[in-house]
Design a protein around this nucleic acid. Sequence first.
DNA 1: TCAATTTTTTAGACTCATCTAAATATTATT
DNA 2: AATAATATTTAGATGAGTCTAAAAAATTGA
Lengths: 217, 217
Amino acid sequence: MFSFSEENYLKAIFHLERRYKGGVSTNALAEEMETKASSVTDMIRKLSDKQLVIYKKYQGVKLSEKGRATAIEVIRKHRLWEFFLVEKLNFNWDEVHDVAEQLEHIKSEKLTRELDKFLGFPKRDPHGDPIPDAEGNFSVSNKLLLAELEKDQTGICIGVKDTSADFLRYLDKNKIALGKTITVKDIENFDNSMLIVIDGEELRISQLISGNLFIKM
Amino acid sequence: MFSFSEENYLKAIFHLERRYKGGVSTNALAEEMETKASSVTDMIRKLSDKQLVIYKKYQGVKLSEKGRATAIEVIRKHRLWEFFLVEKLNFNWDEVHDVAEQLEHIKSEKLTRELDKFLGFPKRDPHGDPIPDAEGNFSVSNKLLLAELEKDQTGICIGVKDTSADFLRYLDKNKIALGKTITVKDIENFDNSMLIVIDGEELRISQLISGNLFIKM
DNA sequence: TCAATTTTTTAGACTCATCTAAATATTATT
DNA sequence: AATAATATTTAGATGAGTCTAAAAAATTGA
């Protein structure tokens, strides 16, 4: 069994690995965990001793298979509990995080399995993030912001972050709708505006727009 | 907010206060917590500093009002979760304890309130123990073993611990049934057998019998 | 009553997860 | 390539909760 703190580090490394391919740096992890770099070094060494991460001094850190499986298990519990809180206990999707942060550390295989069954094996949590199954497989792809895509990447529009009438009207007017395929043709360095292709038409959108559109790849 | 450990001590003191009226001794608490007397002294001092218990050296410890309220809140959460596990997640009543020991420490007023509502404000957990309401009131009295009663005390039979056919047949034969009122007339020191009165009739029962009959007072 | 026994507390040490401050390694910049 | 800036690790300390061993207080009982 692992401590709350160890599990939180593994989770953080898992999330950061998407951004830092070659290994997660000590500083990045310190920022994510809201702690000091020296504390991170200590914990990484401990996780390394337990074979949960692969670590070489000054080289950053990566999850081992065991570490990844543990991180995914914690994420699975977090998202199942979020779903439970919203679906069964009348929480709003924006109130669940802190409680789920606590519940994700409860140790009981049967609890997780039965909770999953009780909830009908949900595929996404209330924020749209995928819930891995008991084997650690994500059956749906992760949600991204359009703003996170790079030049020449393509995705499908699956949701909006800003739900204001103004924003939705803008999308309507420009024929951006759920299910549409979007390809990033170019990104302007100066203001991060994007040139995208949707329905074969080119369209330039500001960072405010791309930062409020959810995409799956 | 209090640590898991602090909450566990408060809970233990709450349970022991029933047996040790004049204050819970360090050794009794050490046994209950499966730890050493010296650790208990340390923790008691800490709880005393936080005004959760009333403590004088060598005099044992009692809960303050604040300490009692905290203990009851933890017990409330423990028993609500036990009910949830059995009623919603297909746990057996004898599998729930360890998981509930973890869940009882989750901090969220809304969670406890909504869970209570979701479960239909249950009055007893799967073991028959009363669940306090949000104000800390036990609306039903606690379940005891007949063996825990003292001379001249009276209670009502509300359940059995041993559910074997042999035991139930014995009860039948001696006209002991749910709902019957039992008064303890005498307890034999040598073998702890009891002389009880039921339906106006005297009956002598062994400790094996009295230790398997649940009573409410 | 006063010695023996039991209970409780104190003293000092350990582990875990964290911190600050200082040292060292890496990287970026002239 | 040398220096400046940045990133990372080491060294040493802290607080929470626990432990063992020893000291002190309370209780028991001859």
